[in-house]
Simulated assay, not measured.
Amino acid sequence: MLKHVTFLGAAALSLSVTTSASAQDVAAGSDVTADTVVAKVGDTEITVGELIIARSMLPQQYAQFPNDVLFTGLVDQLVQQQLLADELEEVPASILYTLANERRGLLAAEVVNALSETAVTPEALQEAYNARFADAPDVPEYRASHLLVETEEEAAAAKARIDEGEEFAAVATDVSIDPAGQQNGGDLGWFSEGMMVDEFQDAILALDIGEVSDPFESQFGWHVATLVDERIQPQPEFDQVAPQLMGELQEAAVLAYLEELTAAATIERPEEGAFDPNVIDQIDLLTE
């Protein structure tokens, strides 16, 4: 859109000086509505409403230009488009089908918006938050560090160094083949049950805070681990999850309404095998 509109260049600025008064006159009118006519091409009227929609579809880069420049440019664009459109004697099928799809989509979006306003209220959002988080059971989380080596002998040697007083992080950085060991001193951060392989989880759950495990094996190799801390998983703040809850409420409202509409409507769908699915790629059908 607006590829041909060059009024945003230097020539446009001089053009706006001679035409911006018309924009001011329209804006100053006390009886201006979306149906107010701002231009005509033959018998075809171009309205304020069409200008507003055209303005709303401009890329963000056009926001830097003043409205008097944009007004003039958009009027010129719509006039030019209408001149060209009037030259088309027969509307191609592809355009008719495109318009049908766009109309269907726009009308459906209006219904979705109306449903959202009803379903997504502050009260509904708070209720959804409480149901999801406020009354949720406590979920314990654990913070652990580990080192990973290839053999039991290497794990035992690393454990001995820790037992003799070396810092766990220093030993992990020195010997671990796991990237976490090399980069973070083995710190794995916070995790809850079910997030780690069984052997690792079992070893961590058997430790007290600060205790270091004996070497144990998993599918990845030989580990030595320590439980750094534990806590109850903190619940997210309302503002953090409000967008997610809003989307879920909206989706639930739309799906419920669609079920009602589907039950009440007479709908015919193609029988299985009635069409070759590849028909959706046959663009040439639009020109037949």
Rank of each mutant, 00 (worst) to 15 (best):
K3S: 11
A10D: 05
A10N: 03
A10Y: 00
A11D: 14
A11R: 15
L13T: 03
L13C: 05
S14C: 01
S16R: 12
A21N: 06
A28H: 13
S30H: 11
D31P: 11
D35W: 04
V38S: 00
A39I: 09
D43C: 09
T47P: 06
V48M: 01
V48S: 00
S56I: 02
S56V: 00
M57C: 08
M57I: 07
P59I: 15
P59Y: 14
N67C: 03
F71I: 01
T72E: 00
Q77W: 15
Q77M: 14
Q82T: 12
Q82I: 06
D86C: 01
E87F: 05
L88N: 08
E90D: 07
E90I: 10
I95E: 13
L96P: 11
T98S: 14
L99F: 09
A100V: 06
E102F: 12
R103A: 12
A109N: 03
E110A: 10
E110M: 13
V111A: 12
L115S: 04
S116Q: 15
E117A: 11
A119Q: 04
V120C: 04
V120F: 06
E123I: 07
A124I: 09
L125A: 14
L125C: 14
L125Q: 08
A131R: 15
R132Y: 09
F133E: 01
F133H: 14
V139A: 13
V139L: 13
V139M: 13
P140V: 09
R143G: 07
S145I: 00
H146P: 10
V149E: 07
E150M: 01
T151G: 02
E152M: 02
E153D: 12
E154K: 10
A155Q: 03
A158W: 08
A158E: 01
K159S: 07
A160L: 08
R161F: 05
E164H: 05
G165T: 07
E167N: 10
A169H: 01
V171G: 05
A172S: 14
A172F: 01
T173D: 05
T173I: 06
D174C: 00
S176V: 04
S176Y: 00
D178P: 09
P179R: 07
A180V: 02
Q182I: 02
N184L: 04
G189H: 15
W190D: 09
F191M: 09
F191E: 03
E193W: 05
V197Q: 15
V197K: 15
D198E: 13
E199S: 11
F200V: 00
I209E: 15
G210W: 06
E217S: 07
E217H: 05
E217P: 04
W222R: 02
H223F: 10
L227Q: 04
V228Q: 12
D229Y: 03
P234S: 04
Q235H: 01
P236T: 00
E237Y: 06
D239H: 02
Q240E: 15
P243D: 01
P243W: 03
E248A: 09
L249S: 01
A252Y: 02
A253L: 07
Y257N: 12
T262Q: 15
A265M: 04
R269T: 15
G273S: 00
A274K: 05
A274V: 08
V279P: 02
I280G: 05
I283H: 13
I283W: 14
I283T: 13
L285Y: 15
L286E: 04
L286S: 03
E288F: 10
